[in-house]
Amino acid sequence: MSLVVYPGSERFRTREDGRDTRHSFSFGRHYHPANLGFGRLIALNDDRLAPHAGYPDHGHSDIEIVTWVVQGALHHTDADGTAILGPGSVLAQSAGDGIRHAELAGDGPTRFVQTWLRPDSPGGAPSRAHVRAPELGEGLVRVVGQGGLPVGVRGAELRAGTLPEGAALELPDGYRHHLLVAGGGLTLPDGSAALADGDALRASGGCGPLHATASSLLLVWTLPPDTKEPGTGTAGAT
């Protein structure tokens, strides 16, 4: 088992045009050959937007895009219309052989975390689906994967939501796990360190129990162990 903590203070950072983005992996002008991704995860961007700022119309292809809104309201517009995503909402979009979309904050400050995954198969018809916060229920809820929103990576699952103070989280053996703390905090199983807002944990194999030191917002990806590491960095808008 391998367990590595990535402090939020060490993430790459981009600040421009009303956007303040922290990148968990190499992205755009930020490049490090030892940090290109984790399994099929090739981008994980934590965006803070000023009112009405964001990403005007732009294109993607051959990428799976999963967006989780932490604060405010994100207006996501593409060929299927506009979805207004409030706190806790999740949107999964397969770019397939090509999409164009825009992602802009509403009338207040907005924070969202967006993950890109390399799909099992390139091309195909684009698709989009989302779930709103009231539908997620309490606690840490599976929102992508079995019983949740579809994503073009077989065996990938995403759980998102709140882990109550004092509750424990275990990550099952036999998988890769990427955990991002977006509020609150966690302690490691051996008590050697604590994770706070913006910190991440990457585990190859199981891990647990992690204990919430406060009511904690978490984004937890679980990936099958046989997914290949990406071979190159990824550039572009979120």
Rank of each mutant, 00 (worst) to 15 (best):
85 L>D: 05
227 T>S: 13
108 G>F: 09
20 D>Q: 00
160 A>V: 13
99 I>S: 01
103 E>Y: 08
70 V>T: 03
184 G>T: 10
211 H>D: 11
158 L>W: 02
34 A>G: 11
195 L>D: 02
167 A>K: 04
2 S>T: 14
5 V>Q: 10
90 V>S: 01
47 D>E: 12
105 A>V: 07
186 L>Y: 14
37 G>T: 05
79 A>K: 08
187 T>V: 15
177 H>W: 07
73 A>P: 03
201 L>T: 15
215 S>R: 14
91 L>N: 12
66 V>H: 06
235 A>Y: 08
3 L>G: 13
60 H>V: 02
73 A>D: 13
64 E>G: 05
227 T>K: 06
42 I>R: 01
197 D>K: 08
110 T>H: 05
44 L>S: 00
222 T>N: 05
99 I>H: 00
69 V>G: 12
210 L>E: 06
96 G>W: 01
138 E>N: 09
36 L>I: 12
210 L>P: 11
65 I>Y: 03
235 A>F: 05
131 V>C: 06
192 S>V: 10
233 G>H: 11
217 L>R: 14
58 H>D: 12
238 T>M: 07
140 L>H: 11
40 R>N: 08
68 W>L: 12
83 A>Q: 12
217 L>A: 10
115 T>F: 07
53 A>R: 01
80 D>I: 06
84 I>K: 09
31 Y>N: 14
62 D>H: 12
107 D>V: 14
176 R>E: 11
145 G>W: 04
104 L>K: 02
35 N>Y: 01
219 L>M: 04
154 R>F: 15
95 A>D: 03
39 G>P: 01
227 T>G: 07
143 V>S: 03
149 L>N: 07
121 S>E: 14
201 L>M: 14
81 G>K: 08
